[in-house]
C-alpha cells in the first residue's frame, strides 16, 4: 500500500503524495483494531469460500464416496485420488491443449475489440457535445437487456450468408457486439468523472478530440481499462452460449463447450464435474491474481470528484 500512485485518482493539484500515504497507514491501523469488523470480514470470507472448498475436496474423492457421503468425511476418512482429473484431461477424445488454444484465441480479441470500441464511444458520449447525445446514450444503455438468445438466429443467418460461419471471426464479432452496451455504460461512468478542467485545458491548447482521447484520457483510464478487461476476460472465457452457437466446430470449440458436454453425457458423474470445474477455473484465476493490483487501485478510480 505504500506505493500508492497519484495517477489513479486523477485529481489535479493533489501533489502531496507523502501525506496521503501517511494518513492511509493510519487509517489501516485504526481499522485493524476493530474486532467486530475483523470477525465480520472473516465470516463473509469463510461463507464465500466453503462451498468452493467443498468442491475442491470433492474433486479429489473417489466416485462412490462422493455419492455416499459429504466432502467433509475426507477429514475423518481420507480417500484421495487424482483419477477424476486424469479422466477429465485425458479421458475424452479431445486434446486439451487445443481447447486451451481455442479458448485463448477466442478470448483475447473479444476483450481488446469491444473495450477499444467502448472507450471511443464512451468518450463521444462524455466529451463530444452533439445533438441527441443523451437519447442515444440511454438507448445504448438500454440494449443491455436484450437477451443473447434472441440474437442467435438473426446473427447466424447473417454469418452463413456472408460465408463466415464456423470461423473465429463470427465469435469475435458476436462477443464484441454483446459486450458493448455494458462496456460503454461502465467506461462512460469513468470517463464522465474526469475533471472537465483537464479536458478544457487540453482543448485550449488546440488539441482535437482524438488527441484529447489519447493523450489526456487514456492514461488516466488505464487502470479502469485493465480492470474491466479482466471482467470481460472472465465473461468471455466462461461463456457457453455464444461459443456453442458460433464456435462449435472442432477447430474453434473452446474449453467451456467441451466441459459442458462432459457434464451433459454424464449427468450423474459429479466427480468429473468437480474436476472439470477446477480445470476450467485455472486460467481465470491466474488472470485475476496477476491483474488484481489493477482492481485494487484502478476500477472507478475517477468515480469521485475531488
Amino acid at each position: 500500500m505504500t506505493t500508492t500512485t497519484p495517477v489513479m485518482a486523477p485529481v489535479p493539484g493533489e501533489a502531496d503524495t507523502r501525506g496521503r500515504v501517511h494518513s492511509r497507514a493510519e487509517r489501516a491501523q485504526k481499522r485493524l483494531t476493530s474486532r467486530t469488523a475483523s470477525v465480520a470480514a472473516i465470516v463473509i470470507a469463510v461463507l464465500w469460500t466453503v462451498p468452493t472448498f467443498g468442491l475442491l475436496l470433492t474433486s479429489f474423492r473417489p466416485e462412490l464416496d462422493i455419492r455416499r457421503s459429504g466432502w467433509w468425511s475426507m477429514f475423518t476418512d481420507p480417500q484421495f485420488t487424482v483419477d477424476n482429473y486424469n479422466q477429465v484431461l485425458y479421458g475424452g477424445g479431445t486434446d486439451f491443449a487445443t481447447l486451451f488454444v481455442n479458448s485463448l484465441v477466442i478470448t483475447l480479441p473479444s476483450v481488446v475489440i469491444p473495450i477499444t470500441l467502448a472507450l471511443l464511444a464512451a468518450y463521444a458520449f462524455a466529451w463530444i457535445p452533439f445533438k441527441g447525445r443523451s437519447v442515444l446514450f440511454v438507448a445504448v444503455f438500454a440494449l443491455q437487456i436484450v437477451p443473447l438468445q434472441v440474437t442467435l438466429i438473426p446473427l447466424l443467418s447473417l454469418y452463413v450468408d456472408s460465408g463466415l460461419a464456423g470461423s473465429f471471426w463470427t465469435v469475435w464479432l458476436s462477443h464484441s457486439m454483446f459486450a458493448l452496451p455494458l462496456a460503454i455504460f461502465l467506461l462512460h461512468n469513468f470517463m464522465r468523472e474526469i475533471p472537465p478542467s483537464l479536458v478544457e485545458a487540453a482543448r485550449m491548447d488546440g488539441a482535437g478530440h482524438v488527441k484529447i482521447f489519447f493523450q489526456v484520457l487514456l492514461p488516466l483510464l488505464t487502470p479502469a481499462i485493465a480492470a474491466f478487461g479482466v471482467f470481460q476476460f472472465l465473461w468471455v472465457w466462461n461463456d457457453l452460449l455464444v461459443s456453442l452457437t458460433f464456435a462449435s466446430s472442432p477447430d474453434t470449440v473452446p474449453l467451456t463447450v467441451r466441459l459442458a458436454d462432459m457434464v451433459g453425457s454424464r449427468g450423474s458423474d459429479w466427480y468429473l464435474l468437480a474436476a472439470g470445474a477446477f480445470v476450467a477455473m485455472v486460467v481465470p484465476l491466474i488472470v485475476f491474481v496477476a491483474l488484481q493490483r489493477f482492481f485494487v487501485r484502478g476500477l472507478l478510480a475517477g468515480s469521485v470528484k475531488g
Binding site: W48, N238, G276, A277, A280, M281, P284
Partner: peptide, 14 residues
C-alpha cells in the same frame, strides 16, 4: 478479496 472474487471465475456449470 481473491476469496470473495473466486465465484466470478467459476462457470455456471461449476
Amino acid at each position: 478479496k481473491a476469496l470473495v472474487f473466486l465465484p466470478m471465475a467459476i462457470s455456471m456449470v461449476g
